[in-house]
Design a protein around this nucleic acid. Structure first.
Length: 564
RNA sequence: UGUCCGAUGGUGUAACUGGCAACACAUCUGAUUCUGGAUCAGAAGAGUCUAGGUUCGACCCCUAGUCGGACAACCA
């Protein structure tokens, strides 16, 4: 039988998939696909890492392969278990499983040491006694060749002896390094006798004080991939120039060679993505922590109310290529709206209330109105919303002197109250001093209750509302983009990214919600009808709920308004 | 004045590997709607960085430029 789904063209392959498929076709590595996600545990993961995670795990999944999680923990002075834990939590939360393949570069310190010895014995590596500044100074520049170290031609015996004594802890930090002996005049800076090992008398989060010399990333990374028999080492563009070094190392040590493929990292508008800058925002308290809902970190997005599905879908949509890119946040927002529109239960709540009094509604009467929990998902059923004489509606939903495009409440005009009656505005009460509207008087049409025949009457606007005496007061945090410019990394002369922070990225207000919200649990997402999607924040207490706005609904009225 | 990489609508990614450019987001119209949401239908928007060349035919191959990015931590 023909597979009907094949009728519709499959999503075209990205360049990495093409490479992998070619390798499979040619039977490389017995057509095996094995990738890895190799974070350094020195910070929290962000949406850029999510792209890489989805890519690596996604590729393995697509080609029936495997993906390892490996911590590149070769620099104990910067790394910490706090980060290890958060990284694992985030990868898992995103929906990926590394099975029993959790590794650490530090697992390989013994093996790596042996590899170094091999290089020394082959005369391909030597101990250099120059201080850091001198090594740097003799490295040359991209356009000018470097100078050879005076220690470059030590004998194999001497190098072996010195390396052993480095390891034994005989020398203080910074006094000696192991360097590869390649070519000080190579046009590729990374080939100018790169440092392989340095002395660091620092406790390592896993190996404790077993080592006082640690391999450099360039030495550890490719070899770790080799040890794990990774078939395709997917990494970002900046490592492209390192590849010749990795190839050299692998060839000289004579071990299994993975294939490295570089792709362009993700850039998102109106935010920053570098760990250093993110750390700065946290340390200098511009945000409240790594999981501040304004942060592009995975934990920040999670707290903001993003779902793993929406992020995975985002990673899929943006694609993979080699050219530098800047993705518009509106695409991320599209992804979460699309997901939450289908998932989130609806609830009515007013954030900027103004009182509505239904003059012809019986004084003490309360009706339980029936409303769909989620119109996009009939199976979710209905909920009861209490209706009474005094209500709150959104202050912006009323205008005394409206333009004709305004479909909401105004003197003499009719609107529908969602899931309730059609009401007509009769008069307005104002504060004599401030002239602010304090109450709107309306009449309701008894025959227009939802479901009744007369309720089919056409009215232009439908408003959300909440019964004043039944409203549950909650705290609401309205988030906006963290920066006011699309590309804060690209600061003009004399400024830095922090000069572009959005002072209004967080606004805290009270919200008045329908009573059904009382059962809300931390992490649950709701659509506040006509307002946006909100998630219950972990700061919530039993009697005081705190909501984070994930993203507002698309608002074409605001767009019309904005055009003026 | 080095090496490596890249260049397709506003943004991102495609184009069956040479047959006159598609999809998504954003934008705009209209329909529909008890969310100015969602949904549905449609429109506009690039002739593929430039100049040569190969070819019946080039986004795709070649040459030379232009522009952009990465690389000079004992960071990863």
């Amino acid at each position: 039988m023909k597979d009907i789904q094949n009728e519709k063209p499959a999503r075209s392959r990205n360049f990495i998939e093409e490479i992998i498929e070619e390798d499979i076709r040619e039977g490389k590595n017995d057509s095996r696909v094995h990738t890895r996600f190799p974070p350094e545990p020195n910070g929290y993961l962000h949406i850029g890492h999510a792209k890489s995670i989805c890519l690596n795990f996604g590729l393995a999944d697509k080609y029936n392969g495997l993906t390892n999680l490996r911590f590149d923990d070769t620099n104990p002075v910067k790394e910490d278990v706090e980060y290890v834990d958060s990284i694992m939590e985030d990868v898992r939360w995103l929906g990926f499983d590394w099975g029993d393949r959790l590794y650490y570069a530090s697992d390989y310190f013994g093996q790596l040491y042996e590899y170094a010895v091999i290089l020394i014995k082959k005369g391909k590596a030597y101990i250099c006694d120059m201080p850091a500044e001198e090594i740097s100074a003799t490295r040359g520049t991209p356009t000018r060749p470097g100078k050879e170290s005076p220690y470059r031609n030590r004998t194999v015996e001497e190098n072996l002896d010195l390396f052993g004594r480095m390891r034994a802890g005989e020398f203080p930090d910074g006094t000696r390094v192991l360097r590869a002996k390649i070519d000080m005049s190579s046009p590729n800076m990374h080939m100018r006798d790169p440092i392989l090992y340095r002395i660091l008398h620092t406790n390592h989060h896993r190996t404790g004080d077993a080592w006082c010399i640690y391999p450099m990333y360039d030495f550890a990374h490719g070899e770790s991939d080799s040890i794990e028999r990774i078939t395709h080492s997917i990494c970002t563009l900046e490592f492209e120039v390192h590849r010749p070094l990795y190839d050299w190392l692998i060839r000289e040590i004579d071990i299994y060679a993975p294939r490295q493929i570089e792709f362009a990292r993700l850039n998102l508008s109106y935010t920053v993505m570098s760990k250093r800058k993110l750390l700065e925002l946290v340390k200098e308290k511009y945000v409240q922590g790594w999981d501040d809902p304004r942060m592009p970190t995975i934990c920040g997005l999670r707290r903001r109310g993003y779902t793993p599905e929406s992020i995975r879908n985002f990673a899929d949509i943006i694609g993979v290529a080699k050219r530098d890119n800047m993705i518009d946040v509106s695409l991320l927002e599209f992804c979460i709206r699309e997901d939450l529109n289908k998932q989130a239960n609806r609830v009515m709540g007013v954030l900027n209330p103004v009182k509505v009094i239904i003059d012809n509604y019986p004084e003490r009467q309360v009706e339980e109105m029936e409303a769909a929990v989620n119109p996009e998902n009939p199976e979710a059923g209905t909920r009861k919303v209490p209706f009474s004489k005094e209500l709150y509606i959104e202050r912006e939903d009323f205008m005394e002197d409206p333009p004709n495009k305004f479909f909401r409440l105004a003197p003499g005009r009719e609107v529908r109250l969602r899931a309730a009656y059609i009401i007509k505005c009769e008069s307005v009460e104002k504060d004599p001093v401030t002239n602010e509207i304090t109450a709107i008087h309306c009449y309701y049409d008894v025959n227009t209750k939802s479901g009744m025949p007369d309720s089919n009457r056409k009215v232009k606007g439908t408003l959300h509302w909440v019964s004043a005496s039944h409203a549950v007061e909650v705290d609401v945090r309205l988030y906006d983009r963290l920066f006011v410019v699309p590309d804060p990394d690209n600061a003009e002369e004399g400024k830095n990214f922090k000069d572009y922070l959005n002072p209004d990225s967080l606004t805290e207000v009270k919200g008045y919600l329908e009573p059904s919200i009382r059962d809300a649990k931390i992490g649950e997402k709701y659509q506040f009808e006509r307002l946006g999607y909100f998630v219950v924040d972990k700061d919530s207490k039993a009697k005081s709920l705190v909501f984070n706005r994930v993203v507002p609904l698309r608002d074409s009225w605001a767009r019309i308004e904005g055009q003026k």
